[in-house]
Amino acid sequence: MSQATYRVPTFVRGVLSRLPVYPGSLLFSGGLNVVLKRHLPDDTLKQLEGRLLRIDVRDAGVVFDFVYRDGAFRAARHEGEVALTIGASAYDFLQLARRTQDPDTLFFSRRLTMEGDTELGLLVKNSLDAIDLSTLFAARVGPMAAFRRRRPTQQP
């Protein structure tokens, strides 16, 4: 099936694009703090300090503006000069997160865009590539294993 098949439906885009930006950015930056921040090197975080970043989920009509400041990712208002905008479809962002698609392949096929400070974009890309996803998700999912439904043991 082609990538064009995986698009946010027009009706959903219409609803999502009308939502205020800041609450979504607040949730997104909170997720970055919980899942990602502790896995990023200190020198990367230092270079992100005070820089306005934007994630643009094009087919959903949604953007997330955030900044790294005072030791945490924080939601930012949709205003001012953006240091780096990374844009793609929801499907392509999912593929990147699952690491089933290479960012360079998406970039050169024009499905992933970077606008603004390209050096900062490469820093973000390389830092994310260096993260071992097995440790990233094991830390979040592992504790939940205790709550999984257990199968009854078979009696001989």
Rank of each mutant, 00 (worst) to 15 (best):
Leu52Thr: 03
Leu52Ile: 04
Leu53Trp: 13
Leu53Gly: 13
Leu53Thr: 11
Arg54Gln: 11
Arg54Ala: 04
Asp56Asn: 11
Val57Cys: 08
Arg58Lys: 15
Arg58Tyr: 04
Asp59Ile: 02
Ala60Cys: 07
Gly61Leu: 00
Gly61Ile: 00
Val62Asn: 02
Phe64Ala: 06
Phe64Thr: 03
Phe64Lys: 03
Phe64Ile: 01
Asp65Met: 06
Asp65Ala: 08
Asp65Tyr: 12
Phe66Leu: 07
Phe66Lys: 08
Phe66Arg: 08
Val67Asn: 09
Val67Lys: 07
Tyr68Ser: 04
Arg69Ile: 06
Asp70Tyr: 03
Asp70Gly: 05
Gly71Asn: 03
Gly71Asp: 05
Gly71Arg: 01
Phe73Cys: 10
Arg74Tyr: 02
Arg74Pro: 10
Ala75Phe: 08
Ala75His: 12
Ala76Gln: 00
Ala76Lys: 00
Ala76Arg: 02
Arg77Cys: 04
Arg77Tyr: 09
His78Gly: 12
His78Ala: 13
Glu79Gln: 13
Gly80Tyr: 02
Glu81Cys: 04
Val82Thr: 12
Val82Leu: 05
Ala83Lys: 04
Ala83Ile: 04
Ala83Trp: 00
Leu84Ser: 00
Leu84Lys: 02
Leu84His: 03
Thr85Arg: 07
Ile86Arg: 05
Ile86Val: 15
Ala88Phe: 05
Ala88Pro: 00
Ala90His: 05
Asp92Gln: 09
Phe93Cys: 01
Phe93Arg: 01
Leu94Gly: 10
Gln95Lys: 10
Gln95Ser: 13
Leu96Phe: 09
Leu96Glu: 03
Leu96Tyr: 08
Ala97Asp: 07
Arg98Val: 14
Arg98Thr: 09
Arg98Gln: 14
Arg99Val: 14
Arg99Ser: 14
Thr100Asp: 12
Pro103Lys: 13
Asp104Phe: 14
Thr105Tyr: 15
Thr105Lys: 15
Phe107Ala: 11
Phe108Val: 01
Phe108Leu: 09
Phe108Pro: 02
Ser109Ile: 07
Ser109Tyr: 07
Arg110Phe: 13
Arg111Ile: 07
Arg111Tyr: 05
Thr113Gly: 15
Met114Tyr: 15
Glu115Arg: 14
Glu115Ala: 11
Gly116Asp: 01
Gly116Tyr: 00
Asp117Val: 09
Asp117Ala: 14
Thr118Asn: 09
Thr118His: 13
Thr118Pro: 09
Glu119His: 15
Glu119Met: 12
Leu120Phe: 11
Gly121Leu: 13
Gly121Cys: 12
Gly121Asn: 05
Gly121Thr: 08
Leu122Glu: 03
Leu123Tyr: 14
Val124Glu: 14
Val124Gln: 12
Lys125Asn: 09
Lys125Glu: 14
Lys125Pro: 12
